[in-house]
Design a protein around this nucleic acid. Structure first.
Lengths: 218, 218
DNA sequence: CTGTCAAATGACAGTAACTCTCAAAAGATG
DNA sequence: CATCTTTTGAGAGTTACTGTCATTTGACAG
C-alpha cells in the first residue's frame, strides 16, 4: 500500500498524502527520520539552485544537512533520486486502481493524472516546478527520468496488470503503459519549460486527446 | 546526414550502412579508427557475456582491446554507450524522411521500422539479440535506454520536426514521438526477452496497431 | 530511572567511472 | 624528408557509490 507504512494503515486517509504522513502519530524515531529526509532534500535544492546540479556534490549536501555522506545514501539511493522520486507514487497507483474497472484505461489515467496535478499545484507548485525544470535542464536527470519505480510507465503498467488480475503483463499492457507514460511526461516537461505559465491541465488534456486519436493528426 | 561523413556523400549508397562504411574509400586513419572501434566493442561484448556487465570494468575492456582507458573513452563517451549506441541511427532518420510527406506519420514509422528490422535481422541478428537482452537484464542499461540521440524518441522527434519544416517541435510532435518511441522500444524488448523466438515483425506490427487504435482495447 | 535490544549514524577504506592535461607517436601533406 | 595535425597513452584527480564496524540513540520492559 504505502512504502512508509508496511503495516495496515487506517482507512480514513486525508487528501494530501504528505500532510497525512506528518499528521500521523509517529514515534520519535519516525519523526526524526522524516525530518532528516526533508532537511537533506531542502538543503540539496537550495545548493543545487545556487550552483547547479553537477557542481553540487553529495558531500556538500550532506554537510549542509549536517549528516554524514553515509547517511545521505541511506536516505537517497542515488543523487538523482533527490530530484526524481517523490512521495506521491503510491498515491497515483491507488487512485488509478480506484477508478471503475470498466472505464477505458486511457480515461482512468486522464482522471487520476488531472486529480493528482490539481493536488500538487495546490500544495507544492513551486517545488514541483523547480524539480521539473531541473529535469529538463540536466541531461543526467532527464535520462534517469524513465528509470525506477517512480516513472509513470511503471505505475501504469502496475495498474494495468493488477486490473487484469494477472501476474505477468502482456505486450499490449506494456505498449500502452509505455506510450501513455512517455506522453504524459512530455506534457509535464513542456509545462516546466514554459516556467509554469502554460496551463498544465490543458496540456495534459491535449496529450490524452492525441493519444486517443491514434495519432491521426500527424 | 551521416555522423561518419559530414561532407557530401555519394548518392548511390549501398543497402547496408555498416558495409557501406567499410567499403567506402577511407584513409588509413579512418580505417584504423573504425577497426579500433570494432575491436573495443567486440572485446567488450565477449567479456560482458562471460562475466556480466557490472563485473566488467572499462579497464579490462581497454586491456583486452589493447588500448588505453583514455582511448576507450574517446570512442565511447560512457560504458553504457557500448551497448546503447549503434551505427544505424542516422539511417533510420533518412528512411523516415524518405517516406512520402503526406503519409500518416504512424505509418511512416511502421514502414521504416520494419524495413530496418529486416535489415538488422539479416546482417547482425545475433549481436542485436545480445545487446537487447543485455538491455533488458541490466538495470543501468534499461535506464539509459531512453537517453541520448540514439533513442527512437529523439529520432522520431527529429523526423517530425524536419517534416513540418519548423525549428522547435510542438507539443503534439513531442507527444507523438515519445509515445511511438516508447511503444516500439517495448516491442523490441519483448522480442529480446523471448530470446528472439517470437516474430519481431509481428510484434512491431501489433504495437502500431495498438497505437493506431487510440488504446481503445484496454 | 535503569538495563537491554534494535535501529540509526558516522568514520573510514575501497572501487570504478569518468575528466583533464601533457607529452609522445603516427598518419597526412607538400 | 620536414612539418603539421590527429591520435594515443600515461598519470593524476574528482566523485558517486559500496561495505564494514564501532558508536550513538531511541524503544521498551522491569
Amino acid at each position: 500500500m504505502n512504502s512508509k507504512q508496511p503495516t495496515a494503515a487506517p482507512p480514513d486517509a486525508p487528501a494530501n498524502p504528505v500532510q497525512a504522513l506528518l499528521e500521523a502519530p509517529l514515534s520519535l524515531r519516525e519523526r526524526k527520520k522524516l525530518k532528516t529526509r526533508q532537511t537533506i532534500r531542502r538543503e540539496a535544492y537550495r545548493l543545487i539552485t545556487e550552483q547547479g546540479y553537477e557542481n553540487t556534490t553529495v558531500e556538500q549536501i550532506a554537510a549542509a544537512a549536517e549528516v554524514s555522506p553515509s547517511t545521505f545514501f541511506r536516505y537517497f539511493a542515488t543523487k538523482e533520486d533527490l530530484v526524481l522520486t517523490d512521495e506521491y507514487d503510491p498515491v497515483v497507483l491507488d487512485t488509478l486502481l480506484a477508478r471503475p474497472a470498466d472505464e477505458p484505461f486511457l480515461q482512468s489515467c486522464r482522471e487520476s493524472m488531472i486529480g493528482l496535478i490539481r493536488d500538487l499545484l495546490q500544495h507544492e507548485r513551486q517545488e514541483l516546478l523547480i524539480r521539473m525544470r531541473l529535469v529538463t535542464e540536466v541531461p543526467a536527470l532527464r535520462a534517469g527520468l524513465s528509470r525506477s519505480s517512480s516513472s509513470p510507465q511503471e505505475l501504469y503498467l502496475a495498474a494495468l496488470t493488477r486490473r487484469a488480475g494477472v501476474e505477468e503483463p502482456t505486450l499490449d499492457m506494456r505498449i500502452t503503459a509505455a506510450a501513455i507514460g512517455a506522453a504524459t511526461t512530455e506534457a509535464v516537461l513542456q509545462w516546466a519549460e514554459s516556467d509554469g505559465v502554460e496551463d498544465i491541465v490543458t496540456l495534459v488534456d491535449h496529450t490524452f486527446a492525441v493519444l486517443a486519436s491514434g495519432f491521426a493528426g500527424v
